[in-house]
Design a protein around this nucleic acid. Structure first.
Lengths: 202, 202
DNA sequence: ACAGACCTACTTTACGTTCAGTAAGTTGGT
DNA sequence: ACCAACTTACTGAACGTAAAGTAGGTCTGT
């Protein structure tokens, strides 16, 4: 059919096409995992030939890193850390509704890179650690400001919070029918109740 | 026992090797994912040639199903459902220490089968649903017996519990340095506090 | 006319699977 | 006790396919 447009138009050139490749990559990775997709698939989704894709990214692995970098950059510009944990929680939940297509990228890649030799293992481990540290820091802050009770291990709680988020992400990806509002509301309530400073004596 | 079976000892040898293949499969799947391993790898680990492996299992995919079936059977004989949630929780935690090598099989496969067309998608979705139902049922039971407060949505809580377990599994697989006892203790305490019937008036 | 974008055609490698055949038991008849 | 027919377990080599990556050319806006 496309006989009069041999080269599918150059209007989507350069950075534009690059972005579309990155988007397609992210979308496909969530659904099929990194090992479950091929350059041909990504290329098709982005409207380019496999070789055309490799014109922008030197290799499949480099594309993966680029996609993750793009994702990190997006996160950094659209969400900043800090703020009350409860507040962060509802922000996270909103994300499931607002940008559902970018939920799960890290969760999927994590399970594909458990082995210490895996290409993303270290990157993901560091990120997980920093996430936990961040939440733990927020809890510690709340404790020192007297908003949270002090007999709670900030690290343990932080791991729990991250585990909940990670798990709910996984479960929702497998079955989007689960009611996120209910679950988030329930967990947030639990969190508030647990962290609240007990009213009086001992 | 069944000594009059036609080719008893020969078949026993087969079953033996079959089991070793199943074990190797499970071990490798956790580390590298299903798509990350080859028949050759599994075969080597089990001490056979790739062709020898296919003598016992018709295809790579059938091997996967067999490995999952074996896992399910193991679970069913070694752990029974029911019992207090808190109690179940410590049982689960013990498992991380006692049989660490079989932690993560489902978690890894889940992320590789998110797509509705994926071979294990339905199987995993059903299992997740039944897990949630089971926990929810246990909560409901506690509520009707007056042990748990009744203003909590059993399903939401059940999803939360499963999410926590799933998430902590993933995080531990990526970084076994996290302190499971602390995290489980903290979450269990939270759970108790949340489910406990409030002492008196409104 | 040049450079960047992109294509077709190709090479290479890896992997699942098949196949023909071998080794080692097992069984039942003599 | 022995042998022929049979069964299971397994190997080595080969095949087909799919996928990453390469070579070298073509198109298009500047």
């Amino acid at each position: 059919m496309s006989k009069q447009r041999p080269y599918a138009t150059l209007l989507a050139k350069g950075e534009d096409r690059k972005q579309r490749i990155l988007d397609a990559t992210q979308r496909l990775v969530v659904r099929h995992g990194w090992r479950g997709i091929t350059l041909a698939q990504i290329a098709r989704e982005a409207g380019v030939s496999p070789a055309g894709l490799l014109h922008h990214f030197a290799s499949k692995e480099q594309l993966l890193h680029a996609a993750l970098d793009a994702r990190d950059a997006y996160d950094e510009t659209h969400f900043q850390a800090g703020g009350d944990i409860v507040e962060q929680m509802s922000l996270l939940e909103a994300r499931f509704r607002e940008v559902p297509e970018q939920i799960g990228t890290y969760a999927v890649l994590l399970m594909e890179n458990l082995d210490a030799q895996a290409p993303l293992h270290e990157r993901l481990r560091v990120k997980q650690h920093s996430n936990v540290d961040q939440v733990a820091g927020e809890i510690r802050r709340g404790q020192s400001e007297g908003r949270y009770r002090t007999d709670i291990d900030p690290t343990a709680k932080a791991v729990e919070v991250m585990a909940f988020l990670h798990g709910v992400e996984a479960m929702w990806l497998l079955d989007p029918a689960i009611s996120l509002p209910d679950v988030f509301l329930e967990y947030t309530a639990t969190l508030i109740q647990r962290l609240a400073v007990p009213p009086a004596g001992s």
